[in-house]
Design a binder for these strands. Structure first.
Lengths: 146, 146
DNA sequence: CTGCAACTTAAAGTTCACTTCAGCTCAAGG
DNA sequence: CCTTGAGCTGAAGTGAACTTTAAGTTGCAG
């Protein structure tokens, strides 16, 4: 089997055919066509789909994923180095996201002791009143004071 | 100031008035009305809104948040203990989410070395071919083999 | 009392990430 | 050849979480 049908790609990637067609419309993946107009995928597309799935896990929008994939070479099959570069980028984003959630967790742990979410005392819910210069919302989580 | 207008609550919580009205329609928060039909919020509502914002950070749907908030007493203002109980629940959910992302990060780190996302070798993208019995998709991340 | 910012409503619109539908055509086994 | 499952298209639908709009009302400062 040289190329994959949309059904094959769907089965191997765990992504529905309708989603694969959608990704193609959005310019995230590519397919060649048979004489009868059916899609045929290079095996390399499987890696693109894998990348999309992983990036989504990290909480990245399709728009951002599209931009990232656009940085891959168009004229040749991406090499390991190409994928490594993208992976490193996502690892960084992922780490940022983990850091935010860990901070949230730690402060929530503190709050369990004080039973708060109190506007007066809780670090999680520091209101505009207290930190007006930095805007509304739970400042300590989103923009911790270094 | 005894109660808050929707504008006050919006400014102090960082949530748009339209979103607050939406939350009310969805049964997440409550307001009393003036003789002229305007909303007035108890200060305790601020805590509910804070809770909603935090839960959303954790990646919880409004539906789940609504269910959680419904477990608070209706006949009295929630105590510290009430909020502690909910907080502990979310801390657990948050931890689960962090664990998934850390696993993803660690495996992505491994992949940076091998430049993969390869279907043959990469733990991130273990296909149906290899682990057919466990369904399609990146199995190692979502359902690690203990 | 007046003016005007802030409030009210219901209904429709928006974005994201897809899925579903209707009405076809294609490809491959018997 | 025939059947049947797989694939095709464009358009419409979905659900989550809101926002926007239009047309009207309220509340407080001056």
């Amino acid at each position: 089997m040289e190329t994959l049908t949309i059904g094959d790609l769907s089965a191997r990637s765990g992504v529905a055919p309708s989603a694969l067609r959608f990704y193609e419309r959005e310019g995230l993946i590519h397919a060649t066509r048979t004489s009868g107009n059916q899609r045929r995928y290079e095996r390399a597309e499987l890696r693109r789909v894998a990348f999309i799935k992983i990036a989504q896990q990290v909480g990245v929008s399709l728009e951002e994923i599209r931009t990232a994939l656009a940085s891959l070479p168009e004229n040749r099959t991406p090499t390991k180095a190409d994928w490594s570069r993208l992976s490193a980028h996502w690892r960084h984003k992922l780490q940022e996201r983990i850091t935010v959630l860990e901070r949230l967790r730690d402060q929530l742990t503190g709050c369990i002791g004080c039973g708060c979410l109190s506007l007066q005392r809780c670090k999680l819910v520091n209101p505009a009143d207290q930190l007006a210069t930095r805007g509304a919302g739970p400042q300590m989580i989103l923009n911790p004071p270094d």
